[in-house]
C-alpha cells in the first residue's frame, strides 16, 4: 500500500518532468535531422546543420558574442551596485529606505514590454543609439531586483548571528570587519545574484526587441526574427548551442553554490547541525 503510493507519486513526478523537458529534448534531437525542414522524430543523424550554422550564419555567432558580452556586463554591474545598495539599505540609516526598497523591487511588477516601450522612447528622445551599453542598462533594470533580494537575504541571515560584533570584539576595525567577515559571508548571495543577472539578460527577448537595431541584435532577437520566416534546422542547431550553454551555466551554478540554494530551496532536507558539507 505504502509503496504503491510511493510508486504512484514517482510516476506522477516523471510525467511532469517529461512535460518540462519535452520541448528542450525535441529541439536537441531535431537539430540532428538530415531533412531540409524541421521534423520530429528526426530522420537520420547528421551534424550538417551545425556546420551550416558556423559556415553560413556568422550573424548568429556575432549575436551570441553580443549576448554573452551584454549578460556579463549586466551581471557585473548588477552585482556591484546591487551589493552596495543592499548593504546601504540593510544597515545604514539612509533616508527614504522604504521608497528605495520599493523602487528596486518594482521592475518585477512592470511588464517587460512596457519597459521596452519606455526605453525605446527615452533613448530616441535622448538620441542614444543601440549598443551593448543601451542593452546592458535595460537588462540592469530587470535583473537588479534579484541581486538586491539575494544579497539582502544573506545579510539578514547572518546579521542575527552577531558574527560582525564578534569580529569587532576581537579587534577588527569596521573596514576589517567588512573585508574579513561581511564580504565572505555575502559572497554566495552575490554569486547567485550574478548568475541570475546573467541568465535574465541572456534570456531576455522583450526589452531587447525595442532597443536593438539591425546591426546590434542579441541572440534571442536574432532567433526570434529568423524563426518568423524560416523553418529549417539551423534554428534548432543554434538553439541547441544555447541549450548546451545553459547546461554549462547550470553545472557551474551547481558546483559553485548549488542550484537549489540559488533559487532559495534547500538541497537536503536538513542542512542543520551535524550534516557535513564539503567546502
Amino acid at each position: 500500500m505504502v509503496s504503491g503510493r510511493r510508486v504512484l507519486s514517482m510516476v506522477y513526478a516523471v510525467v511532469v518532468y517529461l512535460f518540462l523537458l519535452a520541448p528542450i529534448l525535441v529541439i536537441l534531437l531535431s537539430s540532428l535531422t538530415t531533412t531540409n525542414y524541421i521534423v520530429f522524430p528526426p530522420r537520420g543523424l547528421t551534424l550538417r546543420w551545425y556546420g551550416e550554422l558556423f559556415a553560413h550564419h556568422p550573424e548568429f555567432i556575432s549575436s551570441l558574442w553580443l549576448s554573452i558580452a551584454v549578460a556579463v556586463g549586466t551581471a557585473v554591474g548588477c552585482t556591484v551596485f546591487g551589493t552596495l545598495a543592499a548593504l546601504a539599505l540593510h544597515r545604514y540609516p539612509v533616508p527614504g529606505k522604504g521608497i528605495w526598497n520599493a523602487l528596486f523591487a518594482s521592475p518585477l511588477l512592470i511588464p517587460s514590454v512596457v519597459l521596452g516601450i519606455a526605453l525605446l522612447q527615452w533613448y530616441s528622445t535622448l538620441g542614444i543609439a543601440a549598443s551593448s551599453w543601451s542593452l546592458i542598462i535595460g537588462h540592469f533594470i530587470i535583473a537588479f531586483p534579484y541581486v538586491v533580494r539575494l544579497v539582502m537575504a544573506r545579510l539578514q541571515e547572518f546579521q542575527s548571528s552577531h558574527v560582525e560584533r564578534a569580529a569587532a570584539n576581537l579587534g577588527a576595525s569596521p573596514v576589517q570587519v567588512f573585508w574579513k567577515v561581511t564580504l565572505p559571508l555575502i559572497r554566495s548571495g552575490m554569486m547567485a545574484g550574478a548568475v541570475f543577472a546573467f541568465v535574465t539578460s541572456f534570456d531576455d527577448l522583450t526589452v531587447a526587441l525595442f532597443v536593438v537595431s539591425t546591426d546590434v541584435q542579441t541572440l534571442p532577437v536574432r532567433l526570434f526574427n529568423y524563426m518568423q520566416y524560416n523553418y529549417d534546422p539551423v534554428v534548432t542547431a543554434i538553439s541547441s548551442v544555447m541549450v548546451l550553454l545553459s547546461l554549462v551555466m547550470m553545472i557551474a551554478m551547481e558546483r559553485v553554490i548549488g542550484i537549489g540554494q540559488a533559487f532559495g530551496v534547500s538541497k537536503t532536507h536538513t542542512t542543520k547541525r551535524g550534516t557535513v558539507h564539503a567546502h
Partner: peptide, 20 residues
C-alpha cells in the same frame, strides 16, 4: 535540479520546442 534547469533555457527556445 531538473525542475529548475529548464528555467535557464531561453524562453524563445522552449516556446519553439512547442511549435515543433
Amino acid at each position: 535540479l531538473f525542475l529548475l534547469a529548464p528555467l535557464l533555457v531561453s524562453m524563445v527556445i522552449r516556446a519553439y520546442g512547442w511549435v515543433i
